[in-house]
């Protein structure tokens, strides 16, 4: 639980951070909340030579509306995300998810950008990110670009992040005003990660027919996924216990289940169904 020797620098702004990354010749890592990085370093699973601390860059704390999207600056902590008025107003799903991450200390230090950049697919945020068509905003010396969440995270702890880049923010689609959302999480009793976490955004039209539904599931396998089979089974239907139950049966079909000491594939599959049904029920009924 003791890391190897490393250097530490603070970046004043994004450009400087990028330069410092370049100077480290691939041996540098960005330090924000440190709640994913430091445990890995302490277990010597990663051994960066240089940590570039970006916590002093105030510009990365911004939250701003951009058309039908809300952009959340990368440095916002989970705690800040969970109480931010604009986030609560436009994308309450993200606030609700952030409130259920880890524990108080983690929420006070861990950041939304770090969480996504680290791409721990068993984390909470990917479920919300998938249903809100999140885009990851990335800056490097060539400028800014955005990447869809599903093309950004390609595997556990593996992203398509270009070299010498930093995540500056996450852009979420603001769902239609008539929808409601929830994030329902089955906590792993040891780690606090979701064994299964289900994010739902859904709504009905003036005839009471489901015209918008998105279901994202995280924790169950290596990567989070959209449960499109469930969505397809619901769209155009009038919500009822029976309709939701039937649709939820296919909750595990669009993803691959993982297994560990605590929960087998079979059990996770069941949890996907039960938690999807419960999440849908709380939103639609």
């Amino acid at each position: 639980m003791i890391p190897v020797t490393f250097d530490y620098v603070r970046a004043k702004n994004v450009d400087q951070a990028i330069q410092q990354l370049k100077d480290s010749k691939g041996e540098g890592k960005i330090l924000a909340g440190g709640h994913s990085l430091l445990p890995l370093m302490k277990m010597r699973l990663t051994e960066p030579q240089m940590l570039i601390d970006i916590t002093g860059i105030d510009a990365l704390k911004e939250v701003k509306k951009d058309g039908d999207r809300l952009i959340v600056g990368a440095l916002n902590t989970h705690r800040e995300v969970s109480i931010h008025p604009e986030i609560k107003e436009h994308i309450p799903l993200v606030a609700e998810t952030a409130r259920q991450i880890g524990d108080i200390q983690i929420r006070n230090k861990g950041t939304i950008g770090g969480n996504i950049a680290h791409a721990d697919s068993a984390a909470d945020l990917p479920a919300a990110a998938f249903v809100l068509n999140a885009e990851v905003l990335i800056t490097n010396e060539f400028g800014e670009q955005s990447m869809d969440i599903d093309s950004f995270i390609i595997g556990p702890l593996i992203t398509m992040m270009p070299e010498d880049s930093i995540v500056t923010g996450i852009s979420f689609e603001i769902p239609p005003a008539h929808t409601e959302s929830t994030y329902l999480k089955y906590f792993h009793p040891a780690s606090g990660y979701p064994v299964v976490g289900v994010a739902v955004v859904a709504g009905t039209d003036s005839n009471g027919v489901i015209d918008y539904v998105r279901v994202g599931i995280t924790g169950a396998g290596d990567v989070a996924f959209r449960a499109t089979s469930v969505e397809e089974a619901l769209i155009g239907k009038t919500p009822s216990e029976a309709v939701i139950k039937a649709a939820s049966k296919s909750a595990a079909e669009d993803g691959e289940m993982g297994s560990d000491l605590f929960a087998s594939e079979e059990y996770r599959e069941n949890l996907c169904k039960v938690y999807t049904e419960r999440a849908l029920t709380s939103v639609l009924l």
Binding site: P189, A190, S191, D260, L261, F262
Partner: peptide, 27 residues
């Protein structure tokens, strides 16, 4: 919740607090 688990080769597979569940107040 708690349980220390070895595999057949004698490797401890519940060797971190990510796997080994210590009870929390909220339980």
């Amino acid at each position: 919740w708690e349980g220390a688990v070895y595999n057949k080769n004698g490797q401890l597979v519940s060797g971190t607090l990510m796997d080994y569940t210590l009870p929390k107040a909220r339980f």
